[in-house]
Amino acid sequence: MSTSRKSIIEKFIIAVNDPKVPDLGQVLEDDVQKILNSKVVYNNIQEAREYYIKELDGESTSQWAIVECIPDDPKKNTLRARISHNNKTADTVYTFSPADKIQRIDVVN
């Protein structure tokens, strides 16, 4: 693993805070899936772009931020973090592909 998974999450957070939502392909797999409170929010990178653009178009000025990141476990393909957005903090588990891109995001508010 050439890049720490925490830095991948940091790049992802920077990207989703940009109103243009730049190339998410650097950090997300094409078949990325996000599950929020047991409901699928998006199933691929195009839906992810649309989701984050819509979130930024809303009236909220809140940005995503990393509150806490549990250190990488080299034996697992996941990283647990607490992410804040819109005055809420959520426990989030990121699952990584063999290419060290985010393949799944599980969020519990």
Score class of each variant (00 low, 15 high):
D100S: 12
Y94Q: 01
K39P: 04
L79G: 03
R80E: 07
I35A: 02
D18L: 06
E55H: 14
K75V: 07
W64K: 03
P74G: 15
K54S: 15
S60H: 03
A48V: 04
P71M: 12
A99S: 14
S38A: 13
P22D: 07
E59H: 12
V41F: 12
V93T: 12
I9E: 01
V40G: 05
L24F: 06
V67R: 00
F12P: 05
T89G: 00
N86D: 10
S97R: 02
S62W: 06
K6W: 05
N17H: 02
P74W: 06
S7D: 14
F12R: 01
A90C: 08
I102N: 01
F96I: 02
A81F: 04
D73A: 10
T92N: 13
K11L: 06
A81R: 03
V40E: 05
N87K: 09
V41D: 12
A81M: 09
N87V: 02
K88V: 09
R5C: 02
E55G: 13
S38H: 12
K39W: 08
E59R: 13
L36P: 10
V41G: 12
S62F: 05
K20M: 13
I70P: 07
S62T: 03
V41P: 13
V108S: 15
N37V: 01
S97C: 04
E50Y: 12
R104C: 09
P22N: 15
N87D: 03
Q63P: 03
V27A: 02
A15Y: 09
Y51E: 05
I9R: 00
A81D: 08
Q26T: 15
Y94S: 01
I9P: 01
G58E: 10
D57Q: 14
L56M: 10
C69T: 11
E29G: 08
N17E: 02
E55D: 11
S84Q: 08
S84C: 09
I13V: 10
S7I: 07
Q26C: 09
E50S: 15
V108D: 11
I70S: 07
T78S: 12
Q63M: 03
I14Y: 11
K54V: 05
Y42N: 09
L56F: 11
I13C: 03
G58L: 11
Y42S: 09
D18T: 03
Q33W: 10
K6A: 12
K76L: 14
Q33M: 14
N37Y: 00
N44I: 01
D91S: 11
G25Y: 05
H85F: 01
Y94C: 00
K75I: 07
I83N: 03
